[in-house]
Design a protein around this nucleic acid. Structure first.
Length: 774
DNA sequence: GACAGTGAAATTTTT
DNA sequence: TTTCACTGTC
């Protein structure tokens, strides 16, 4: 019945493509060459990628399990999976994962190729830092994070301690040996760090053509979302995953790259067509989210960045109101201002959930919380104090990790120091020495395996030499041993149960085990005995942790999965109960970084002051990243956008005057409505298009700043200049320098044709710098 | 090994 | 201002 099949396909085609615009359709049906979809903010990126998955399955005959889609966050992965499945239920068979969870899965499967045990658990950043401290006792506390960052960076660049190129990244010769000892110690612990989840799979794929071919046969389609956030190592992994027959499609927006401090390489997206020859680019420039007024401001600001692939967003959304820029006095007034806005809108029928208040640093959330509490405005703070970052929870997780892997030194010492009375640095050092002693006697042929002596063995040998600590340590060791054997037994039972009939699960969930561990290890009683107030909430958190384990079976594999889930997806579980407990109509308080991928009808971007946003130490590429952050913030807004700027701010215990963010100077004067009293310099720059009704809280005045309107008018962005020494150039930025208000200078940044960039103060350097063309 | 006192530092953070 | 890590004492 070929005809019937055709009709069915046509219907399916119609169904999938009906709601897409021309570019989106092109992106969905594209095949053959590698494809970069440059998706502007709000351009329907997720719709395209999920439709593409459905399309490949139902119209291209690709089997779901041959499709690999990677994202950066679990949230994005879940959303993608859900939306793809709603378009085509078969899509649930596709592999949709984060880079790291894909790496973890790959690594468990091919562990032996990397010489590690498949039962590894994953060290988070804190654990890795603790390991580094243990491996390098010589490092002082402030050095640890900086060295850790270097190691992380090396891994992000796919460099091992013996890579010849490592010196290019870090010239310090001592770093190589530090990195080497860290790596050895990590391998010895039997665990991996976050970087390894990307790094080791690359290594395996490069060194094992057989595995590489297997993977190439397995995945005929590879899709990457938020490609602008990929780092060098993820790029290398991608290159290994993509075989000659693989169809590769990446989606991203260079203007929304805001994680370079985490290793993201904008260059991955900027040079995609060079990395994958023959690649095509499809731009999605139609914005479905924001009003033209909002889009205009956002585009103007981001256009001040160099090195963009360039997009021109347009929208068919109905015109709305101009964004509002409010000049206020202090953060308290700023919070009041936001509360007023929100209250007034609420009275007109706009619910609280329409609003998001954005800020650069978490610390800024406080004044909003205080004010909103006072005004009875319900709110939710996104991304503060996460459940899995609480001390008692981390400690419990360490305990569970240690039961799984008794060579896990970080977890072991962390628990000992915290919970076993009488054990401190001295005892730990003794155990570590004994551990090394035992392992050197083993004339181990490199990699640690299950039979190698572990920390329980080492502790056991040390106990007789201890005085009062020995008693406690001894009961700790036997408690762990008991937990281990209980888990082993349960696993064996589960195994046999599985053989006989898969349905006959013993009925016990991992919760039972977690509770038992917390009880036996003394963690429960430890936290129950603590001061009433926080002690009881901590004990409660431990119960929540064991509840979270309910979804996993009582077995070794179950514990492994539970821990991996916690390590790679720190959201989950807790959010639900919190949501149930409260109202659902709330204002969102959130950092700019956390807003990526979200949208709100009404957005306030707060703290637009030099030094805070952008932060003071930002120049060059970092400054451009701050500007992209501003762009991300602006493009979250659908209907209304507000900016606030304070003339003074309390920071680090002192009250300091502040100047408007340079980003505010990048907004076209007729693009916003100004409220309050801007500082003289700003008014000058804006040619007094500013300052309508003074509004509430406008009592504040900005200090200092002689009028420099003449200067600012002449030396503005976009003007072509000629310099005696550097030749022709164009003004790419114009702003007032930071520092004390009275000392501020008008500064321009010029990009020369010769390639260089240089700052000038036209006030003093007019003689060697000429304006060629306005 | 526990505790109190001092001094430097203070982002953003998918995993 | 607050926080955390280090230092010296008991």
């Amino acid at each position: 019945m070929p005809e019937f099949k055709n009709i069915k396909q046509d219907l399916e085609k119609e169904f999938l493509l009906k709601n897409l615009n021309e570019e989106q359709k092109q992106a969905v049906i594209h095949e053959g060459t590698p494809l970069l979809i440059l998706a502007g903010a709000g351009s329907g990126k997720t719709r395209v990628i999920t439709t593409k998955i459905a399309w490949l399955i139902s119209l291209k005959g690709i089997r779901p399990e041959n499709i690999l889609a990677v994202t950066f966050t679990n949230k994005a992965a879940r959303e993608m999976a859900a939306r793809a499945a709603s378009l085509n239920p078969a899509a649930s068979g596709a592999v949709i994962k984060t880079f790291h969870s894909f790496g973890a899965k790959f690594l468990r499967r091919y562990a032996s190729a990397a010489g590690i045990s498949p039962n590894f658990s994953i060290y988070d950043d804190d654990d890795s830092a603790a390991l580094l401290r243990q491996a390098e006792p010589g490092l002082s506390a402030p050095q640890v994070p900086s060295v850790m960052r270097k190691i992380e960076r090396a891994k992000n660049y796919c460099l091992e301690y013996d890579s010849p190129d490592l010196a290019l990244m870090e010239p310090d010769p001592d770093f190589v040996s530090v990195y080497r000892r860290y790596t050895e110690r990590l391998r010895n612990s039997g665990n991996v760090d976050f970087g390894d989840l990307i790094h080791l799979p690359i290594k395996i794929l490069r060194e094992n053509p057989g595995i590489r071919d297997e993977i190439h046969r397995r995945f005929s389609v590879v899709l990457v979302d938020e490609y602008q956030d990929s780092n060098a190592a993820q790029f290398e992994l991608l290159k290994e995953l993509v075989g000659p027959e693989t169809y590769l499609c990446v989606v991203g927006d260079d203007d929304q790259s805001i994680y370079s401090f985490r290793g993201a390489e904008v260059s991955n997206i900027l040079s995609f067509t060079e990395s994958f020859p023959g690649a095509e680019i499809i731009r999605l420039e139609k914005n479905y989210r924001s009003t033209p007024e909002i889009l205009r401001v956002a585009s103007e600001i981001v256009s001040n960045n160099g090195g963009r692939l360039g997009k021109t967003l347009y929208t068919e959304c109905a015109p709305g109101k101009k964004p509002v820029l409010a000049f206020l006095t202090t953060q308290e007034v700023e919070a009041e201002f936001c509360a007023q806005l929100i209250k007034q809108a609420f009275d007109k029928g706009h619910p609280y959930r329409d609003w998001a208040v954005l800020y650069r640093t978490n610390a800024q959330s406080m004044s909003f919380e205080t004010e909103f509490l006072k005004m009875k405005i319900p709110y939710t703070v996104v991304g503060s104090l996460k459940f899995y970052e609480r001390e008692e929870v981390k400690l419990s997780i360490s305990m569970l990790s240690f039961i799984l892997n008794r060579r896990d030194e970080v977890s072991f010492f962390k628990i000992l120091k915290k919970t076993v009375a009488g054990v401190g640095a001295t005892t730990c050092a003794k155990i570590q020495a004994e551990f090394e002693n035992l392992n050197s006697r083993e004339d181990s042929s490199g990699a640690a395996d299950v039979s190698s002596p572990d920390y329980l063995d080492a502790a056991g040998n040390v106990i007789p030499k201890l005085k009062k600590a020995g008693q406690n340590l001894s009961s700790f060791v036997s408690a762990v041993k008991e937990c281990v054997s209980v888990l082993d037994e349960a696993s064996a039972e589960t195994e046999t149960a599985k053989d006989e009939s898969s349905a006959a699960s013993s009925g016990r969930s991992l919760s039972v085990f977690v509770s038992m561990v917390l009880e036996k290890s003394g963690l429960y009683s430890f936290y129950r005995s603590q001061a009433e107030g926080s002690g009881s909430s901590r004990a409660l958190n431990l119960e929540m942790l064991s509840n979270a384990a309910a979804l996993y079976p009582f077995s070794l594999q179950g514990l492994l999965d539970f821990l991996e889930h916690i390590r790679l997806d720190r959201e989950m579980a807790v959010d639900k109960s919190e949501e149930d407990a409260g109202v659902s109509d709330r204002v969102t308080l959130i950092t700019l970084h956390n807003t990526k991928g979200l949208e709100f009808k009404r957005v306030v971007i707060t703290g637009l002051e030099e030094g805070l946003f952008p932060r003071e130490d930002k120049t060059g590429d970092d400054l451009e990243e701050e500007r992209r952050l501003m762009y991300v913030g602006c493009t979250r807004a659908m209907k209304r956008l507000y900016f606030t700027c304070c003339s003074a701010r309390w920071m680090y215990g002192s009250f300091r005057p502040s100047l408007p963010s340079r980003f505010l100077y990048e907004i076209p004067p007729d693009g916003v409505k100004v409220l309050g009293s801007p500082p003289p310099s700003f008014a000058a720059f804006y040619g007094n298009a500013a300052a309508e009704e003074p509004g509430r809280g406008s009592a504040g005045t900005f200090p200092g700043a002689a009028p420099v309107s003449e200067l600012a008018r002449r030396w503005k962005k976009g003007v072509t200049v000629f310099h005696d020494d550097y030749g022709y150039g164009i003004i790419t930025e114009a702003f007032f320098s930071g520092g004390k208000p009275a000392e501020q200078e008008y500064v321009i940044l010029v990009r020369f044709e010769s390639g260089g960039e240089k700052k000038f103060m036209p006030e003093y350097q007019g003689h060697s710098l000429l304006i060629v063309k306005d």
